[in-house]
């Protein structure tokens, strides 16, 4: 039932993207996100979409997974599209009561939709090809320089690791509790909204009780293993930049330059 949630899921595979240093991947993602927001011509979009498709292809992860990652955001995207379609001024296509869809709105809406798709897919490429542990390690490493101005890099990374670690656990637990309450006659699929809402508590309470218990146990287990924060901690696998990472960086810089040229030339 809750099997379908694909955000933040990691898929181990042996692809080029899996092998790139996570820090490089994060920075590249960051650059692309900015690029997406700066893009506004058709040529820009074509470059971005092509790039996205190529990356999805070489990640060796089935396209259906990417489509699934779009699913939870579909309503928000549709909503944005409709707002644009009816909200923008311009030459009307059809009139519905007080609102009218405009050509201008159609184009804007489509661009925004593509933009959001590209953003989600980019983020999915990162999380699909990078294990959560490596991802947080990379974040910590990237945040390290900011320690001087008081950013608790290690603590943030640890919090993220723990949160990520427990997402599947909590999803599994929710699934189990829903099933258990269903077995006791809780019915989530019929009756009016008040009746359905009354079955939220029987799920939330056990879920929270379980989460707090786990948090307690985890804190105890960490303390028992003498966890004292990040000071002086070393790691078993040091992150090292390899030839591949430099190669990717150069490639990305070229793409960015191309986009900038497009921008200046106004293609």
């Amino acid at each position: 039932m809750l099997d379908d949630i694909m955000i933040g899921q990691f898929f181990p595979a042996d692809s080029l993207l899996h092998r790139i240093d996570a820090r490089v991947k994060i920075i590249v993602l960051f650059i692309f996100i900015m690029a997406v927001f700066l893009c506004d011509t058709r040529a820009d979009y074509i470059v971005l979409i092509l790039l996205n498709i190529i990356l999805m292809y070489i990640s060796k992860i089935p396209i259906s997974m990417y489509l699934k990652s779009l699913k939870p955001m579909l309503w928000i995207i549709l909503f944005t599209f409709i707002i644009h379609l009816f909200g923008d001024a311009g030459e009307p296509i059809v009139k519905l009561w007080l609102f009218s869809a405009t050509w201008n709105g159609l184009f804007e809406g489509t661009f925004i939709t593509i933009r959001l798709f590209v953003l989600i897919l980019m983020a999915s490429i990162l999380t699909f090809t990078t294990s959560p542990l490596v991802l947080t390690d990379a974040l910590e490493s990237l945040l390290n320089p900011f320690k001087i101005i008081g950013v608790p890099a290690h603590e943030l990374a640890m919090m993220m690791t723990i949160a990520l670690r427990f997402i599947p656990t909590l999803i599994g637990e929710t699934d189990k509790i829903i099933k258990a309450q269903k077995s006791r006659g809780a019915d989530f699929s019929s009756g009016n909204i008040v009746k359905r809402m009354s079955f939220v508590m029987p799920i939330l309470i056990p879920l929270f009780v379980g989460a707090f218990r786990r948090a307690d146990e985890l804190a105890l287990a960490m303390e028992a293993r003498c966890y004292r924060g990040g000071q002086g901690r070393t790691r078993m696998k040091e992150m090292k930049l390899e030839r591949l990472d430099f190669f990717v960086s150069v490639l990305v810089i070229i793409v960015v330059i191309v986009l900038i040229i497009f921008k200046i030339k106004g293609i």
């Binding site: 189990k176 509790i177 099933k179 258990a180 309450q181 006791r184 309470i205 056990p206 009780v209 379980g210």
Partner: peptide
């Protein structure tokens, strides 16, 4: 249906 570890469903 009595689940495995059913005590987790009390509320």
């Amino acid at each position: 249906m009595v689940f495995q570890y059913p005590e987790q469903q009390l509320f």
